[in-house]
Design a protein around this nucleic acid. Structure first.
Length: 286
DNA sequence: TCCTCCCTGTTC
DNA sequence: GAACAGGGAGGA
């Protein structure tokens, strides 16, 4: 389930392989994967044309963005099982291939293919003009990037809210890029009970939580993300941060801090693992 | 603010 | 052959 560190890793491994290269054709094998209302295939990939050139590969939140020249943007949301991978030009689509891009041969590079594979078909791609992209509601409402976020702004965005702190961490409008894994890991590392109402946490606790969010994200980026089940980078390589999980997926096992059993519960509709000793429930505020 | 739904491969 | 994984849209 690609979250910020995984998408960042994909962007970093994808960029050197496709930047500067022309995309000569796109083939959509599952129509719904190319979001309706954001389908500019004929305009972006006209017949008898070398095709648009990749000028940049970026990440924002969990979105992977490919800038094209002339002016188009490919925005991918990988959701749970989406993968972006460059393979040999002759590689045929597999059962999970949803969109296939042909990369024209470049200076030194041979022709190749960019695959968007997605077993569970939750992921999507939007192909938009920059002005439409800038007006896309999901884009305009996206909260700030956690890395580099000032504690004061984080506190201001969650202070006084009645919802569970983990629900706010998962809310992309509050802060962008955090999913179930890193929300649990950050709560544990800062000793915050994930079900605590944000309003019950002091500014000091919230600042500590943000620091843990930033620490786990940075550490995971260093480890090239977490690979459980599906995630791979654009080279097909796995990440290693899953070896450093302290709570995610460890319900019933011993807490690395106190040795007691980790508990499992549901917060914001998501499986949540925490240590009841090291993450005491904050005192509720009326 | 919370719940349901979408979707399919994997695990029990 | 059922439970489970979960991001985000949409509705209660």
């Amino acid at each position: 389930m690609p979250e910020l560190p995984e998408v960042e890793t994909i962007a970093r491994t994808l960029a050197p392989q496709i930047t500067g290269r022309a995309i000569s054709a796109a083939r959509v094998l599952l129509p719904k994967t190319l979001a309706a209302g954001a389908n500019l295939l004929p305009e972006a990939f006209p017949e008898a044309s070398p095709g648009p050139r990749v000028t940049a590969v970026r990440r924002r939140g969990k979105l992977l963005l490919i800038d094209l020249e002339p002016g188009f943007i490919l925005a991918f949301h990988l959701k749970m099982t989406g993968r972006l991978m460059v393979r040999d030009a002759k590689t045929p689509p597999n059962t999970h291939t949803r969109i296939l891009f042909d990369l024209a041969p470049g200076n030194d590079a041979k022709a190749a293919r960019l695959f968007f594979d997605d077993a569970r078909t939750f992921g999507y791609c939007r192909l938009m003009r920059p002005q439409d992209f800038a007006a896309w509601p999901f884009w305009t409402r996206l909260g700030p990037e956690p890395l580099g976020l000032a504690p004061e702004e984080f506190i201001q965005r969650v202070a006084g809210r009645r919802g569970a702190i983990k629900a706010l961490l998962l809310d992309q409008k509050v802060i962008a890029g955090i999913g179930n894994i890193y929300a649990d890991e950050a709560c544990f590392r800062s000793g915050v009970h994930p079900a605590s109402p944000a309003a019950s946490l002091t500014e000091t606790r919230l600042a500590a939580l943000l620091q843990s969010v930033q620490a786990v994200l940075e550490q995971s980026i260093e480890e090239c993300g977490s690979s459980i089940r599906d995630y791979r980078d654009a080279n097909g390589d796995a990440g290693a941060f899953q070896n450093l999980f302290r709570v995610y997926g460890r319900a019933g096992e011993a807490c690395f801090n106190c040795g007691g059993p980790l508990h499992k519960t549901t917060v914001a509709g998501r499986t949540t693992v925490f240590c009841p000793v090291c993450q005491p429930e904050a005192v509720k505020i009326r």
